[in-house]
Design a protein around this nucleic acid. Sequence first.
DNA 1: ATCATAAATGTGCTCGTGAACATTTTTAAA
DNA 2: TTTAAAAATGTTCACGAGCACATTTATGAT
Lengths: 343, 343
Amino acid sequence: MTPKKYTLQDIAELAQVSRGTVDRVVNKRGKVSKKAQKKVEDVLKRLDYTPNLIARSLKRNQNLVIAVVIPIHNEHDIYWHQCAQGIAEAERKWGQFGIILKYFHYHKNQESFASMFSQAIEMDPNAILMAPIHYEELKTLFSDAEAKDIPIGLINTPIEEIDYMTFVGQDYQKSGRLAAQLMANLIGSDPHNKILVAHLGVDTDHAVHLHAKEKGFRAYFDEHFPGLKIDTVSYSSDDVVENMDADLSNITGIYVTTSKTHLLSDYLDKHPKIKVIGYDLVPKNVVQLQQGNINILLNQNPKLQGDTGISSLAEHLLYNTDIPQKRLFPIDIVMTENLESYC
Amino acid sequence: MTPKKYTLQDIAELAQVSRGTVDRVVNKRGKVSKKAQKKVEDVLKRLDYTPNLIARSLKRNQNLVIAVVIPIHNEHDIYWHQCAQGIAEAERKWGQFGIILKYFHYHKNQESFASMFSQAIEMDPNAILMAPIHYEELKTLFSDAEAKDIPIGLINTPIEEIDYMTFVGQDYQKSGRLAAQLMANLIGSDPHNKILVAHLGVDTDHAVHLHAKEKGFRAYFDEHFPGLKIDTVSYSSDDVVENMDADLSNITGIYVTTSKTHLLSDYLDKHPKIKVIGYDLVPKNVVQLQQGNINILLNQNPKLQGDTGISSLAEHLLYNTDIPQKRLFPIDIVMTENLESYC
DNA sequence: ATCATAAATGTGCTCGTGAACATTTTTAAA
DNA sequence: TTTAAAAATGTTCACGAGCACATTTATGAT
């Protein structure tokens, strides 16, 4: 059967006090005699009272502001672009309920980030969602936010030293290990295997993530195929093919740690047997996957991450729900045969 | 800037009519003169009015009942057990907002299903979520629901002939194709490969799904490895190992279409080189995955399906939101290295 | 006991919508 | 024109919580 929903009025009658007194007990506003306190608490416990969140939020009827601190990006920066899409989607969904976003876009350097973060704190938002740049002085900024009791949601990069309310992102090292296991499946245990880790189109702000991925990747192979040779290359420019041809030969597998795997297309056209694992369902990558140049794409799902980041904070603000402190997204493994269900 | 949220009162003032008249226009209750109608509609359009859903649902303050028609199951029937968990979770989440579930559990046969479905319709719920058993006479039952204007959500099995509001589930054939692609990666292109499709612990209600999976699996191999021999076995009993040993030999890969892959454990202990792909993160399967007997588990995510099924209908009932007619869940590929993120 | 003050308790209004009800205006028939 | 009925329009209350304010009760000093 359905448990009846009790109201403050119901409780008040049963406890033989007024609605106001019950309200004071429930919201811990004080100014209640011990006797009344006890009577009310007994009834509350007995009936398992929970406040009507709808009524509560109607009464509040004030906008709740979430400051969003993320890098400036354009449509070529697929990761942030998709992440921003997810955030915008969540904004639409929660706008209905008085959740409002204020954006603070920073350039990808410490000063700009610090400046935007400060501005965000200054406007006294009800919460902050941000993709942090990690550095030492950051902590003082965090203390400011903490002093103001502003809950902070992190996205993309967890920073363990500080006191955040929730983190949404992946475990990059695990991601690398998974890629390694997949690569091992793809290339088998041929002694001639030669693997390459490629950081393509590298952006300084991602460097730490890429490093974590490589670390996980290598750790897996160290454990399971100790002798195997693994090289690393890092190209920030676009003329990847020439460099590749000049630098390397006889590669059997490439693990690209960024979403720029598609830059390899010309190279792969010439070396069709190489197995390739990359990241993100960028249109150009998808084409390469379908053509067979890329074998597996790992989907970091930035859009869902953005959505989840906002949604967690919104639910917390509106309904005081407990939200998980860490939400590590599964890494989706995408191949031609399940590509469709991720688009 | 944030678009101001207009209320009925705001509209009324601007259109120089009363709040009641605006209400009649917005909710299409009639009894409005053409002149007033036009005035109000103009203002509504100009200000892009959307009703405050919180206030609306506070006012409604009636319970919305969703009838849930699913098979009877116990904790050994992991698929339905987890699905029910998801449904229960959604119930908790939405109970807050006046969504109430009434269960109609049926035995896995047509008569029982028809009976429960009828009972569900009879009680006039606001919506029905069900896992249907597909058969011809079903359609008349659906007409009954349609006549009563009860929106229906399907879960697990889509039935194209009828007019449902939303379907939550997977594409079983695609699932089979994906399994095939993964299997191809695992076993490579050795001419000695011999593959087995195993329907283990078969339950009549799942038969159609298993068949679809097998079809997809075979289709993939037909396209990419035309000559390859693929056998099929189907065991409903528990003494799988003896049967396997008696019936087959030299198998290199097994695709188990059910969540009972763990039944193979003894057999696999004796044949450690066989590559195995199965379904669902059942604890026993997880153990086998970790021990290396199972290579890949495909996660159908029944829990999330149950949650999504209820949530879709709940959102529709509460907020009149458009919900996707079909929600095909991605099939998660789970290996030891990403197992953690799915538990 | 008297009064001032603090502490405790109770009451009334608000949020925006929906729906019942009350009032005004329009229409049509005599 | 008068009058009754119908149509249109306006008003009020309720939903449950939160908060400001009004009212009552308890406390302590004289």
